[in-house]
């Protein structure tokens, strides 16, 4: 599914620049070591982590985008770093679990 389609249908906020990307699967974790081990290229990564080293992990594995849940505020330094490395960060006021319910609703599957 196209990232833009997910952004529109689920109502995600764009916190960084966004470019055309395909999303393949969803990965949920708040541990960067977990991302390094188990996330797959093209995944949409749902997390409550907002530290700038999330950019480092997302870029290494070539994730489609980071979605920060729970309406958590993302520090400007994280956003600046993400923009420089073309890492896309999106935001949602829903909890991780509620966001999953919405993602199923638009047809994303494990």
């Amino acid at each position: 599914m196209k990232l833009q389609e997910i952004i529109d249908k689920v109502g995600l906020k764009k916190l960084t620049n966004v470019e055309v990307r395909n999303v393949q699967g969803v990965f949920i974790s708040d541990m960067l070591s977990d991302v390094m081990t188990n996330a797959k290229s093209g995944n949409l990564w749902l997390t409550v982590q907002t530290h700038k080293n999330t950019v480092s992990a997302a870029n290494l594995i070539n994730l489609a985008a980071i979605v920060v849940t729970h309406g958590k505020e993302v520090p400007q330094e994280t956003i600046d770093l993400a923009n420089r490395f073309y890492v896309i960060i999106l935001g949602s006021d829903l909890s991780t679990y509620e966001l999953v319910s919405k993602l199923i609703g638009i047809g994303l599957k494990p």
Binding site: Y97, K102, I104, G105
Partner: peptide
């Protein structure tokens, strides 16, 4: 299950979590 699979399975089992929307 991984976290996403687990959330999906629980959400599907619970009709209310989707009907909230």
């Amino acid at each position: 299950n991984d976290m996403f699979e687990a959330c999906v399975k629980i959400a599907n089992a619970d009709s209310n979590s989707i009907s909230k929307f």
